[in-house]
Every structure is written in C-alpha cells, then in structure tokens.
Design a protein around this nucleic acid. Structure first.
Lengths: 235, 235
DNA sequence: ATCCTGGTTTGATGCAGCGCAAACGCGGGA
DNA sequence: TCCCGCGTTTGCGCTGCATCAAACCAGGAT
C-alpha cells in the first residue's frame, strides 16, 4: 500500500504538477503516512490545524456541525486531493471535520512547514491555491443553488456531481463508489432524508437510478441533468 | 480624494499590514485609481480577470447571476478590502460581478503582476490569502445557515452582519451606512422581498429596527441576535 | 403642483416539503 | 438460523413561505 510513497507513482497527482522529481522526493520525505479506518475522524472542526493532508486512497467527508448538532456535508475529498489546508489561508483551526467515508490512506505534513514549502516550490503553492479557488467557487455555486433552486433540483445535481467526481462504470450504470446514505445526500442539499428517499424512489420507478443500501447507481444521467436544470414553476 | 494615494494614509489598511512604507510606495506606483459611480459595474461575472482591486471608499456589492436571471448577493465589500482577486486563485475569469452600491473610489492593479508581487511582498500575499480564507469560511457558514436555519433567522443574521461590518452609530441606533433594499436582503438570504418586508415590519412594530426607503437602523441588536439564534421549532 | 418611478406594504391563496410515525428489509453477529 | 440494528420506505397532516395581486408612498423630474 505505502509503496505509493514512491514519488514516481504519485508524481502525476494534480497537487504536484510542475514539480521536479527531486523536489517531490524531498517533499515526500517530510510526510507521514496515515491510515484512517472507515468512520474515523482525521481531524475535527475547531481543532488546532497542526497538519495538512494529501489523500492517497479512499474518500473523505468534510463535515460541519452546527451548534444544534445538525450536520452539513461541505464536500467529499477524493484520492489525489489535498485537504486540511487551513494553514495556507492563515487559519489557526480547522473550519470543518474530516471523516473517512471508507478506509483511507493519506499523507500528512506539519502545518508549520507550509510557508517554507510554498516558497521553495512555487508550483506546489500555485496548485494549492487553485484547489482553494475551486472550492471557494464551489461553495458559492452551492450557495446560489440553495438560494434559487428547489429541493428536487438540488438533490439531482448533488447526485450528478458525485457521479461525475466519483463515478465508476458498471454494467448497470455509473456507481458512486463509496457508501452514501439518503441522510448524507440530505446533508449535502439541505433537506431531510425523507424527502431524498421519496425523490429517489420516484427516480427509481422512472428507471433513472438503481439504488440499494448506501449504494447509488445512475442510469439516466441525461434525464437527471434535465431535472437538475429544469425551471422551478415560474420566473 | 486621491490624496488618499499617499502611502502614509493607507498604510494601516489590513491588506498592507507588515509591509514597509517603501514597499507600499512601489506597489502603489503600479496602481491605477478608479472611480465608480453608484450602480456601475466594476467588472462582470465571467469576464476575463484583468485586474484586482482595493476599495478605498464606498461599498461594493458582489453579485452572482443565475442562468434564469435571478441574482444572489455573495457579499458586500467595504473600504479597505481587496476584491476581484481571482488571479491569486489561478482563475482566469471573475466568478461574480462587482457593482458599486454607492459612489466608490478604488485602486486597480493588472492581474499579471500578482505573482511577482506576491513573491516580492510575502506579507501582502499572506494578507491576501487570509482574506480569501475568511471569505471561504464565510461562504461555508452561509451554506450551513441556508441548509439549517429558517428564513426569519437568516434575515436577522444578515442584518446583524451588515450592521457589524458597516454600521454607523446614530442617535436612533446603528445605521447600515449604504442604501440597501428589501430586495437586496432577500438576495442575500435566499427569500423574497415580500417575506423580508413582512419580517421587518414586524420588527419595526416591536421596536427592534427603524427603517425607511433603502435605509435600515437597528435599535435592538441583542433582541435581533436572539431571533437569529433561536431554535427552529424542533430538534 | 403633479406625475412617474422605484421601493414598500399588505392581503389572499396554494403548495412544497417538513415533522411525525410506523413499518419494512437487508446484512451481520451470536 | 434467528435476531437485532440501521438504513430505507411510505403515509398523513400541517405550515412556512412563495406566488399572485393590488395599493401605497416618497422623492425627483418636469
């Protein structure tokens, strides 16, 4: 598993694009490998941001918890992505929790080498900031979506998003390749698991998806995408 | 007005903290002053991000427009803040439009000097990334709020936010010191101007706010804050 | 003084989606 | 094999808010 630590094997990951093999080798030498069992918390919201991470294998759920104990899923991290990069934005604490959605393998670096690292490897810094840019954009897209679209469309586009980013082709259709519940989807879209369940039952009847316990396979992504983009009733 | 260009006068703005007067002088030498009349667009969503900006005076509304023509207000920029810093995140286009909420004065720099500038003045880069971090955090906070809180609470906290960031003490109470309509508030909170109007009429009756045409004065900020944080019906 | 325009208020009505409740089914552990 | 627990499904009543519609009001232009 940790043979992945061979720089040649991960040199193609987006966070490292533009770096030389030598640079990567020195950077990787500073990393600590990390194994996280399904369900375990890699870090918790509000904790001091001691490390930043690169996910090598698995999926991570980034979650915010409200004062009232409700949860909102900010995003999923797929393998090859950086996460926990609070330090790059001058934050002292993690703004959200990272929970392993499946068994995961990651690398971690101490936060305090961030500045020196960024200075030494500008390409790495640039890549990181691009990642952050993408996430900011994404957050604002979702904000707009929450403000203007109704539940059905939000759920449809959440599923499409997951499929795009983490879909695996099977003979049935495209499978979201980590366990995901109705509850999870409701926490991504700001609704209740009941509503998600109802919607998906409907789609299952229409043959758009096929789903089981924590398992979703999309068959008619075009049709789903129609739903995601269809006008609400008026304006 | 543009006497403000004197570095000594703006050296205390957060984006420049940690820089020497000399550094600021060279940086300011590369800036172009800019005047934007109320209502004018400084840049539009989707346009090529040729410049980044520092607002010296006024207020800017950062707006996203949906495919259906609806608008969502992403945030307000107050004087002393940077905006349009897409280049720092490797974005080619502005992700939102910037509209002058009042007559504004700003400085602009060409985007392509960003990287050299960030390299030459690390403090400036750090400050900028902190700003971005704050905005990412803010976007995600609002996302959580949209997902979990009901309209009344969202409107209350939006108003409190505006008051905190742009409030001016008057004999009546704290005034939001730029023109802001019910419609604007609805576009910040994902509701309709009707609902905002109803809510605010109620608060006006209760003596929590006093408001006129595009003018809002908050009297009972503690009470408002209670509303903003009160539990929804259940859980 | 009068009109016009853009913002605001208020009423009436309908429905999407939530809260609550109960039952179901699959998969894993004993 | 049976049981238990967690995820899921489904029904029902209720309500928060959107939608539609109309009137109102203040300030600037003529």
């Amino acid at each position: 598993m940790l043979t992945k630590l061979d720089p040649a094997l991960i040199r193609d990951l987006p966070p490292f694009s533009g770096m030389t093999l030598d640079q990567m080798t020195t950077l990787l030498a500073k990393a600590t490998p990390l194994r996280a069992d399904k369900g375990s918390h890699i870090f918790d919201m509000g904790a001091e941001a001691r490390s930043f991470f690169l996910l090598l294998d698995g999926y991570i759920r980034v979650v915010r918890t409200t004062p009232n104990g409700e949860q909102v899923i900010a995003r999923y991290i797929a393998s090859g992505e950086l996460f926990g990069i609070a330090e790059a934005l001058g934050m002292k604490q993690y703004p959200a929790s990272a929970v392993a959605a499946v068994d995961c393998v990651a690398l971690s670096w101490p936060s305090d080498i961030w500045h020196a690292t960024a200075a030494a490897y500008p390409a790495f810094a640039t890549n990181t900031y691009k990642t952050i840019g993408g996430r900011l954009q994404d957050a604002q897209d979702r904000l707009v979506e929450m403000a203007t679209e109704r539940v059905e469309q939000r759920v449809a586009s959440a599923i499409l998003n997951l499929v795009e980013r983490s879909g695996r082709q099977t003979d049935d259709g495209i499978l979201i390749d980590f366990p995901i519940s109705r509850q999870d989807i409701s926490e991504m879209t700001g609704t209740t698991l009941h509503t998600v369940s109802r919607l998906m039952s409907g789609w299952e009847n229409d043959g758009l998806v096929k789903s089981g316990r924590q398992k979703i396979t999309v068959i008619g992504s075009e049709a789903l995408s129609l739903i995601a983009n269809k006008e609400g009733s008026s304006q």
